[in-house]
């Protein structure tokens, strides 16, 4: 139970059709720091959805958060 409280989930979406990755991270650091701490690198810019709300990449992850990273590509 205690373990669960300090963790959050980050789901990394890749390009459409490629397998997504679900990672458990420790809360209390930014999304980018959390990814770095588990050695995940992103190939392209993303936008973070935190519990369904569009959020800054420097958002500090809270226990129990569900973060989805959506790749962003140039418009045109």
């Amino acid at each position: 139970m205690k373990e669960k409280q300090i963790k959050a989930i980050i789901q990394v979406e890749r390009l459409p059709g490629e397998p997504r990755q679900s990672i458990e991270v420790v809360a209390g650091v930014t999304i980018l720091e959390a990814l770095a701490s588990v050695g995940v690198s992103l190939q392209q810019p993303v936008v973070a959805l935190v519990n369904g709300k569009t959020s800054d990449m420097n958002y500090v992850v809270r226990p129990g958060d569900y973060v989805v990273l959506l790749p962003q590509i140039a418009g045109g």
Binding site: L15, P16, Q43, Q44, T54, V68, L70, P71, Q72, G75
Partner: peptide
């Protein structure tokens, strides 16, 4: 091939879903 993998794979139509989901 790496830098523009997104463009090679689906071009800009690849962003339709993600832009929708992120409120864009």
């Amino acid at each position: 091939k790496t830098m523009m993998g997104w463009a090679i794979k689906y071009g800009t139509p690849g962003s339709v879903r993600y832009n929708h989901d992120s409120g864009g």
